[in-house]
Amino acid sequence: MKYQDQELLDALAVDFILGAMKGAARKRFQRLMMASPNVRQTVWRWEQHLNPLAEGLPATVPDKAVWQRIQQRLGWLAPTATPATANSTKYWLALATAASILLAVVMLRPILYTAAPQEIAVIQSSDAKAWWLVSKAQNRLHVKATATVTDDAQHDYELWMLPANGQAPVSLGLLPQQGERLLEWPTAADGIAIAALAVSLEPVGGSLTGAPSGPVLFTAEIVTL
């Protein structure tokens, strides 16, 4: 392909910017941008032409938590030092311990708790180190990564619900590698009795097949409090 043809280059730059250029062609073009000043200048010129389109969009103020999480990602804030969860490490550690104890006293539950049930799970490795703490309230899952989670920029950890009736696992979303995240409980998983949760290692962005495609690293049971 002749990249010195400016008209062709314009067309390629636009495809790149709009996202119409995909896969291997996109990677090749990125390499070309690094190698050729003319190619990258063409892309920059088209970015300047097109990006003012975004000026027409009304601004949408993001949640305050986004700024907190950016600071966490940059290491300016301890992962647990967000105002809302100041004591959350201790809280969660206590909860994780309590969860195992509570298993033993679960028979007392009807007497002790009549309020709305809360379901929690501790996803832990075989050496009993907690990686994630999962709690479900209504139709939301609150997931929190502990410091044990191994950062893996090449992969995502995907959380699955394993139905008790033996049906195929239902994806619950991607687990954070740091900090915490809210996941919507999928409607596909509504009303299905849960046997366990599982975590698989997937390509960035999650499994493309709708089923776990990488190794299953963890399984965990849900405890109802």
């Binding site: 975004a54 000026e55 969009l57 009304p58 601004a59 949408t60 103020v61 993001p62 949640d63 986004v66 700024w67 999480r69 950016i70 990602r73 940059l74 995240r181 809210l182 996941l183 919507e184």
Partner: peptide
Amino acid sequence: TSGKLFSVSLHLLRRHDWAEDVLQDAFV
């Protein structure tokens, strides 16, 4: 700038949680 950039991200992704993830990544 985050308001405009969040709109850009929301328009492309149409999901609040994904758009927030992208905004975070972008600012990092």
